[in-house]
Design a binder for these strands. Structure first.
Lengths: 340, 340
DNA sequence: GTTCTCAGTGAGAACGTTCTCACTGAAAGG
DNA sequence: CCTTTCAGTGAGAACGTTCTCACTGAGAAC
């Protein structure tokens, strides 16, 4: 492999000037020609390891996730990677398998590896490990949640307001007896609080026994949806706070042969068919009303912000939260109980 | 950040010995204690960039894919990453968006980045870019396909034999009027050839007008499945050579309200519900008979083989193909036309 | 007791860049 | 015409490791 010293010999231009040229600084026209000719002739490629040693930049960034087989992440990663690659960065993938302890270890490993930045979908409610990175000058961006006790950039969607608005629209259609099944995560919590607030602001008292919290890893969404349906005073509208529960609703619909929205109206957070090769649901009519997240956008903005942070010295910015808009699609799955 | 020289001063042991200790060579007990104490005290972490400069090892490997949002890949990547991480390697993700030209560029970028190895699901039928890497001493492992003209390790499943056997079983159940819809990829080709051979070996001449090749990006699987169903002498068994087409079959079943297997028998290559949060199909009875690929295993063996190749000097091995076994599950979706 | 072996050691070169700093010479300013 | 400026230059140090090589000294072999 030819080195910059070979190019120096071949071109007759000093390695300092060659290095400058390679890093985009201006050199005289005649030197540019000489250098380019020599590089071409030798098929010289700069060695990024040697380059990184002095500059302590690796042009690699980390992506730390709980589970890449969760359909939420691939579209985000795809767009993130595309944007980072376009800017000369590589993306290192780190799946911590939903293990909060492993998450901490993985982030530390990446940090020791001298990555230039990272995005992380954390499962720890404490952000100590993240704060450590930031303090060490490593830019980190939080994905899909906030950690109130640390100063850290984040990309989220407006879970609270999205549900607040969507449920508000359903209430205006006449629904007041509202139930929900929701999961154990940060986002589920935000969403269900949006629902509560919407009800309260419309003068409806949420019935807590109709808001069922489940552990999506352990509990069955279908079973809990069934409990709502089997109540004496069963809800006219059921909100499913994530895709797992939405799919539960789909199963219940088919199993019980439910008529939607005659028997019950349904509102789901997330898209049920996210994967291009798994869209075997959208044609079942009526589609569920849903709130869909701009997954590619999340990846895009994560890349954009991270690139900015990498450029800027660590102490000269305030942490920001980029809150992206969801898209709400109320379909025939929500009954109009009153004329509008 | 403390360096090895700080540890040298603190411990009184020379940096050579410290380096040896850090790389797992034996040092005397007393030196070990001194070094460990100094490292602990200074919170020293080895700088992998500096280390990589001399040793030209980055402990990073690449994963080059056409599309990470294809549900086929995440389970593979997950297991691959887990195994590589356990062995101290990082995984760099590179999604080339189904663009063969970009694939070549991305692999070259990774190669220039001095990764230690790579796995690639190629979309190029020529392996020139891969051969270039191998010749340069960079181990590359092919995923899910073979390239006959280059000497390269690969991990595949036994597409041909899996279909050969499965179709053979269907034929023994009495099916002889067999149709198929298949895609444009290498694997589709292997599979459909397995089908052809199975028919021929049972003395049945495949009717080529019932073996419909489609471009899964452009053509509609449903439409083509419909064409088979609408034939005067329509097949008693339809083989779908991949998950996209299998989902097409699912849609057709629901749209046309087909009775399976009374109206037609179905055999699908791949699992329809691969994603943990997308299993809203398996409960529709009868499940489609299918051939499922051991995705985690693919990731595991890819990691195993790649680690081996990284250890071994490039010219001392013969390229191998690891062909993993699929699992065939013939359900009630294939009618028994004759008593067995 | 003398030689041989060999695991363990430390000094210093090497890896291939970037960075620092002093220098050059042409253009600008007086 | 003389000073000032400043973009561009090249020599050599620096980055933090690993590698090479000559050396040590304890135990084995004779």
């Amino acid at each position: 492999m030819p080195t910059i010293l070979d190019v120096e010999k071949e071109s007759g231009v000093s390695k300092s000037t060659i290095s400058r040229f390679l890093n985009g600084k201006t050199v005289t026209e005649q030197n540019r020609v000489k250098i380019e000719k020599a590089i071409e002739k030798l098929n010289y490629k700069m060695n990024p390891i040697a380059s990184g040693l002095k500059s302590s930049k690796t042009f690699s960034v980390g992506v730390v996730l709980p589970d890449i087989t969760d359909s939420f992440f691939p579209p985000i990663i795809k767009e993130f990677e595309r944007n980072m690659t376009e800017n000369g960065y590589n993306v290192i993938l780190s799946d911590y398998g939903n293990d909060p302890q492993k998450e901490i270890r993985q982030l530390e490993l990446l940090s020791n590896k001298k990555i230039d930045g990272a995005i992380i979908a954390t499962s720890n409610s404490s952000g100590k490990h993240i704060q450590t990175c930031i303090d060490a000058g490593l830019p980190v961006i939080l994905l899909d949640r906030l950690l109130p006790d640390i100063k850290c950039d984040s990309i989220t969607v407006d879970n609270f307001n999205a549900v607040y608005d969507a449920v508000g629209r359903c209430i205006k259609l006449g629904h007041s007896n509202i139930g929900a099944v929701y999961g154990q995560y940060y986002t589920d919590n935000e969403r269900i609080n949006g629902l509560r607030k919407a009800m309260l602001d419309h003068g409806i008292k949420p019935e807590e026994n109709k808001l069922l919290k489940i552990n999506v890893q352990e509990d069955s969404p279908e079973e809990n949806l069934g409990r709502l349906l089997d109540m004496r005073d069963s809800p006219s509208l059921i909100f499913c706070s994530n895709v797992y529960i939405g799919i539960g609703a789909l199963k219940v619909r088919l199993r019980r042969n439910l008529r939607i929205p005659q028997d019950v109206s349904v509102l789901v957070f997330d898209d049920i068919a996210t994967f291009p090769n798994h869209d075997y649901v959208s044609f079942i009519k009526p589609e569920f009303s849903n709130i869909s997240q701009p997954l590619s956008e999340i990846g895009k903005y994560a890349a954009k912000l991270l690139l900015e942070r990498i450029k800027t010295p660590w102490d000269s910015y305030e942490a920001v939260n980029i809150e992206l808009k969801t898209r709400c699609n109320i379909t025939a799955s929500v009954a109009k109980l009153i004329k509008t």
